[in-house]
Design a protein around this nucleic acid. Sequence first.
DNA 1: AATATCATCAACCGCACCGAC
DNA 2: GGTCGGTGCGGTTGATGATAT
Length: 349
Amino acid sequence: MKLLCYLSYSINPSLLSYITPVSGRVVGYKLTMRKPEASPKNNNNNKLRKGLWSPEEDDKLMNYMLNSGQGCWSDVARNAGLQRCGKSCRLRWINYLRPDLKRGAFSPQEEELIIHLHSLLGNRWSQIAARLPGRTDNEIKNFWNSTIKKRMKNNMSSTTSPNTSESSYDPNTKDLNMAQDHHHHADHFIMPMFNIPSSPSPSMHATVLNMLEHGLNMPPSGGFFNSSGGPCNFSSQIDSSKGFYSGGVFESVNIGTDQGDMYNVPPLENVSTTSDHNLKLESTCNTDTNHNSNYFDDINMVNNNTNNKKAHHGVDHNNLFQEELTMGEWDLEELMKDVSSFPFIEFSN
DNA sequence: AATATCATCAACCGCACCGAC
DNA sequence: GGTCGGTGCGGTTGATGATAT
């Protein structure tokens, strides 16, 4: 089916309106999903259509974009002969028609990467998507909310069972298995790497990045993340033979050092997100000489770029971030502040 | 077989940012 | 400095198919 999807798309992208991009399921054209004329607002003077896109609309937009390229989206909508708002055209293009979109289910590697990036970036789906070539923020967001979040939720509920801590490893529940395993060691502070709140606080965000930055130099006295009491090394390592973590979140020190380490997170890819600031990021980070430093540079860039958005909340993330990066040691109190908002609790809704 | 419930995901909505005027 | 249009982002909705009862 996946192959069929790719083939079909290469022939006529609009055909794939009938196939969901992620699952590859043939679902038929959901003509009534968002009933185009259902709302009175749709009958306004502009007669702008809403709801699902028809194959004809897809064709129009695709042809226009391929022939004329992207301009002002409202112009695109008008010039392409679409009775859609520019916003809708943009969304359709980015999420569905873009030629470089990858189709099909998320691979285990992609899943791991999403989880990892989410632990660092929170719900900054666009930033996460920028590191997954061919994937859209919407796709990743849906995947997270439907699959990963549910998995975590299920796993959290399973922690109430006394047997769960002894349960064998299940790749489908690996995140919470690890978290719960640590969680049961009450004498050690546990930071569930995958369970950072939707919007990590600046201090927590900084702390996580601090860990990544200074993992080797973490004060042994902290020992927050190492149940064995040894030096605290924060990083993640994939056992490539299994496709998942080999030793838990806080075990190895290997981020970005192995060729096969998927957490050697690629710099922002040339993924045609049409986002200007993503392109800027890409231009500043896209070098392959030093993956490790690039990665952290990249994260810093992310912080810088998200800073503007956060400014209206009255918090200067960037300053906080840089401040904490220079601290060189853990601010346990700050860290603990954030623990209460970990999705260990959040996912219990 | 009929019905209810769940899972998925395309698309909308509201908000914020940015640049031009 | 205020307004406006364009754009991007994250949260949410709701139709559909799949699965359970």
